[in-house]
Structure formats: C-alpha cells, structure tokens
Amino acid sequence: MSSPSMTVPNSGPRGAQPAGAVYRPSFGRRVSAWIADRFAMIVAILVLLYLFTPVAYTFVFSFNNYHKSNITWNPEGSPTLKHWKNPCGAPGVCDALVTSLQVGFIATVAATVLGTLLAFALVRYRFPGRGAGNVLVFVPMATPEIVLGASLLTIFVQGFVRVGLRLGFWTIVIAHIMFCLSFVVVTVKARLLSLDPRLEEAASDLYAGPGSTFWKVTFPLVLPGIVGAALLAFSLSFDDFIITNFVSGNVTTFPKFVYVSYLRGIPAQANVIGFSLFLFAVTLVVLGQVIGSARKPK
C-alpha cells in the first residue's frame, strides 16, 4: 500500500485469476492508484490548513492597532506589539485567566486521583457491581454538555444552596471534576489494559511483594497514562464553556470572558493570551513526543 507499483499486477497469467474477478486495464489502475496515493495526502494537508485558519486569524489580530473594537483590521499603525507588551491591559482578562488556571489545576488534580483509583478498580478487580461502575463512568461522556450543565444548575440552585454552597468558583470546580473524571478513567484504563502482564509476573517471580511490585513496576508503567490523563483533564477544564456558563454565577473564566466580551469585540489581549497558551501547549506536546521517542527507540 505504501507505493502504487506494489498494488499493480504487471505480470501473472490471466488464467490464474479466480472466476468472476474483474480485471481492469493496468494503465487505468496505475492512474487511479497514483491519484489515490496522493489524494489522501493532499486532502489531509488542506484539512490541516483548515484546522489552523482560526488560530492564524487569532495570531494576526493580536497585532491589530485598533481603536474601538478588534473586528476589522486597522492599517494605520498596524502591526503593533503593544498588546503583547501588556497582556493584562484589558480589564478583567487576567482575572479570568487566573480563575481558569486555578479551576483547571484543582479539577485536574482531583479528577486524576479519583479517576486513576477508579480505573485500577475497574481493570484489576472482578467484583459484583463492576458493570454498573463501567456504566456510571461511561454515561457522563455520552451526555450532552448542556444537559450536564442544566442538571448541575438545578441541583445547585434547588439543593446545595441550603448547605451554603453558592454558584461561583467552587461550583465550577465541582462540575469540572465531574466531567473530567470519566475521561481520566478511560485514558488510564487504556494504559492499564495495554500493559504486558508478564512484567508483573516477573516481579513476583523475583520475590517482590505486592507493594513493591506495584510501586516499582506497575505504577511507573502506568504513569505516562496518568500524566496524559491529567493533561487531557486540564485542557478539557480550561476550555469548557457550556457547563461553566451554567454553574459559574458571577465568576468569569477565560472562555466565559471571551464569550461575554464578543459583542463589543474581543480585546486583542485575549488573542495574545489565547495564542500564547497555544504555543505553550504545542511546545509541551512536542517535548513530550521527543522525550518519548528518545526513550524507546523503535
């Protein structure tokens, strides 16, 4: 499949074909194989460009020297670096960013711990209620975000107010832990299932007790999955808008800030912050891949 010539039969007796097989002329097949070979790659590159278009837009408009709103490009004095020099210049933008980072951090830690425990229980043990546990983890992921947000708002407003929990920072944290949890479980579960059981058997053959087998063999092997799950949880939490919008009350997270300020035009500082986070995350991922491939040469 890697090269078109491999799929083109250029020799071989016609009589050897099974009866009823359709034979196409080799030239036509050559052309279609050539197109098929490159078609996927050309479309793939176009789709990737499409994916990056709004990111490029965000980047370009972070240099716009606008007066009232950052919607149309102002050629006078553009491009300018002033937004990059003062990313907190727009009122509220850095407060929202800090809130998002705090929520993301707490939700990630909590969801990762709870989710990892759940994943271990569901993969490593057979017990009555395991099927129900799997369903409980799965269904939140199949539920539309708006339903999660609506139901949480209902319970917060009608139930938890009585114990003094008001809509705000902590209700956002609670909601984020809830929807990140399932994704952590799925990620860690996948890692646990892909482990070679012989490694753990070997450890116990070498007289390691269950505790040291776990901490010296199992845990280090699962750790990449846990780290991946934590990164996934953070990015889900940081980018969430729909659920947050339902349960946040007056507290503003970064996506909510952008959404609320869009009618007046988003300040270019939001573009600066959005693009910087993009750069930061990409650097992290690239570093992770480089380290990962350096560790296990294939």
Binding site: M1, S2, F52, S235, D239, P255, A281, V282, V286
Partner: peptide
C-alpha cells in the same frame, strides 16, 4: 498509511488548534 515519519507531526497538528480556546476560534 501515507505519513511515514511525519505521523507524529500530523498528530500534533490535529490536536494543536484545540489548545486555543474554542470560543476564540469560533469567533475568529
């Protein structure tokens, strides 16, 4: 099937745009 050693890079390219806030991208 076609990317060969560019596979990792393409994977990053698929995920990377999602590190910009989706509200920001939708408004873009």
């Amino acid at each position: 099937f076609k990317a060969g050693r560019w596979r990792g890079l393409m994977m990053i390219c698929v995920i990377a745009p999602f590190f910009t806030s989706f509200i920001l991208r939708t408004i873009a």
